[in-house]
Design a protein around this nucleic acid. Structure first.
Ligand code: FES
Ligand code: FES
Lengths: 143, 143
DNA sequence: GAATAAATATGATATACATCATATTTAAGA
DNA sequence: TCTTAAATATGATGTATATCATATTTATTC
């Protein structure tokens, strides 16, 4: 469903949501193991997220990556789009130029409602929302 | 969402559902262009579908690929699973060993219901169902 | 049964995605 | 200001997916 890069990105951001803040930065090497992802790979993904202001970071000794208050209020979909672009999620399921109701492909009526609902959900949910789920035991991180 | 191979497979099967039967076979080269897919590629995909009895075929002059009555009653999900396996659709969205309610990942509550619904829909819908949509103008093929 | 026309099997190449490795920049602290 | 520890930039390698090409098998028709 999602590419590996997106999954890794989501895991990393959620880890940061629970384990970091502007006073408590996390080094990439200390983040890779608990979320079960190759360090060099997640480093690259985090660089992209940082460039796009999805996460925050500072260099040098005592540096690291973290989420500030603004970062926490971003939607989940912003992470997905940051890594793999919007098109991959919104394209026609059978590769028409664009998905449209006027001349829908055979899968549109069937599958598009579920997909739209999913996207809406991912747009409305913030990183903080999911972090609260984790803290309250509704869902679990060691992933 | 789906891989290209799956999209191509779905397009090809739907084309056959509308344009073939056991009396009227279609040559691969006559199928590739209308569904806008490279011929050599779709040929390979069709071979796999044929091997798995999703479609029917005969060799030699007057041969071709087609859907018989049994083929038409198969679910859409069977096409997807034939090409890319079941796991890709049912795996945990964040790559846990397996998706389970007892210890759900942070995305489970959020995204899994939409996904389950989609899978259920694809299981219940047959190729024939979609072909009827096309014939009645509810959806469109030239894809 | 020989010639032909189709799918099928097999493998080669190209492109995208995932992973690894390393040199560069930046900030902290001595 | 020098050393050091961190992210960042860049690029190399590996692996899966997509695409192309061709030889083989099978059924039809004469
Ligand atoms: S037209 Fe294909 S999904 Fe909407
Ligand atoms: S546990 Fe991750 S989707 Fe169900």
């Amino acid at each position: 469903m999602f590419s590996k890069s997106v999954k890794y990105a989501l895991k990393a951001v959620l880890f940061l949501a629970v384990n970091s803040n502007d006073k408590k930065k996390v080094m990439v090497k200390d983040l890779a193991k608990p979320i079960n992802v190759p360090q060099a790979y997640i480093a690259k993904v985090l660089q992209e997220l940082s460039k796009q202001k999805i996460i925050s970071s500072t260099r040098g000794p005592k540096g690291g990556v973290f989420l500030d208050e603004k970062n926490r209020e971003q939607s989940l979909v912003s992470i997905i789009y940051a890594i793999e672009g919007e098109k991959k999620m919104t394209h026609c399921l059978l590769n028409l130029k664009k998905c449209n109701l006027a001349k829908p492909c055979p899968l549109h009526h069937l599958a598009n409602p579920s997909r739209e609902e999913l996207i809406k959900t991912l747009k409305n949910k913030t990183i903080n929302d999911l972090a609260m789920d984790i803290k309250s035991g509704r869902s679990f991180l060691p992933i």
